[in-house]
Nucleic acid binder design. Sequence first.
DNA 1: AACAAAAATCTGTCTTGACAACTTTACAGA
DNA 2: TCTGTAAAGTTGTCAAGACAGATTTTTGTT
Lengths: 243, 243
Amino acid sequence: MLDPQSPTPLYHQLAERLAAAIRAGEFAPGERIPSEPRLAAEYGIGRPTVRQALDALVRQGLLSRRRGSGTYVREAPKEIDLFSLDGTGASFRKQGLAMESHLLGEVTRHRLADGERHPLAGRDVFTLTRLTRSESTPVLLEELDLDAGLFPGLDRLDLAGQSLSALAAERYFLRPSGGRQSFHIDYLTGERAARLEVSSETAILRVERLLHFPQREAGFFSRLYCRTDQFVFSQTLGGFEHA
Amino acid sequence: MLDPQSPTPLYHQLAERLAAAIRAGEFAPGERIPSEPRLAAEYGIGRPTVRQALDALVRQGLLSRRRGSGTYVREAPKEIDLFSLDGTGASFRKQGLAMESHLLGEVTRHRLADGERHPLAGRDVFTLTRLTRSESTPVLLEELDLDAGLFPGLDRLDLAGQSLSALAAERYFLRPSGGRQSFHIDYLTGERAARLEVSSETAILRVERLLHFPQREAGFFSRLYCRTDQFVFSQTLGGFEHA
DNA sequence: AACAAAAATCTGTCTTGACAACTTTACAGA
DNA sequence: TCTGTAAAGTTGTCAAGACAGATTTTTGTT
């Protein structure tokens, strides 16, 4: 039973109680937990209070809900080395994970205005979007901008299944000399949320990465939206990492 | 006014409306927005629905609430280069940010059991915890484990204000040869939440980092809990990064 | 003008209740 | 035994209301 006299709110006590039960293995991944009305009756609290507790566990990645069906325990995320791999597709396969990456839409070329808040502002860029799925669940969305001057004719290439970093190295003889990436926690809406199949309540790791080349500073900019609820994303340190 | 006929729920419409107003500068950082009862009256919806909308904006880092006082627009986070710096303290100062790091408790030495799920399992380690604040707000909590064999006598040194990476290089002649770090979104409870002054609803970037040395594989393990709502944490790529 | 107390207002927690949208289960008929 | 429909049960959204804890504003007194 919950303790109404406790300084810890009831919804919080329930969330901790359920989280402990999940971590202790009382509910297996994929298993349905008792319904909201059932939990309300069992713990003697209102359904909105139960929902508040479950809301927190959903956000923490322990539970997922399906309207009309119930609330289920989630699988633990697998780990993928992302921030140090030579092309997402190739390294996904190397790590024995069934991943599929594919382009969304066409590669387009356009000019970024001078005043635009973008590291490649003032230049012509190739823009492309790529989505990676694991077992048909989206896990990574990449939005890429490449300096058109560094990658001439890129829009005429068949990029399906291609490693961009391999392409950069082998076709354009480009190896990054340095760069910078920043890490953010984001909540997606609109098209990005739809592509990753998440609600605006789901915390997403967004990594903004800018690569420099000996031939041109700030030649490649990318935004990576990572579903850390699906995968653990890691980076190998030592030696240079690039996209 | 909100549109009750819209497929978008009312709380979601309000959240989007308020987010747009904040981003458009209608409310300046630090400014108080209309109270919950006031918003309920203005938009003709219930206070629980207003709270649901505000909950989402608080989680997204746009708003913060103070009981009895009101709901305020938050400052945008500043950027700090963390995952490529030679010791947090030194690089904070180099980047002109008023940061203070200090040890929580003493350096302790103990042995990790062989079967323990820890990269340094089976060894004696020095364990220490460090908290970094900016303008008296905690932004980074580090929990560090160092192989005691690589860092003899570490517990007898005065580590206050010290760069650990400089210490490793200059006193112990240790430079990392490689490593790995993984990125997680976490929700803290208990002591960690108290130290970072966050609620269990706040999404935290947790980075687990393991460094290898020529002298010893897996010599240094650290967990970094980053308040991305306070700072943008970034990494410089190229050349080797180490703690 | 300054200070203390009371009142008002704010957010935080919780309840009961209702209805919508969706899924699952039970039942009737072929 | 199979299929279709109704009933039951689930989550999602929303409302009104109450009270607690904290802060701010107003009022009264000196």
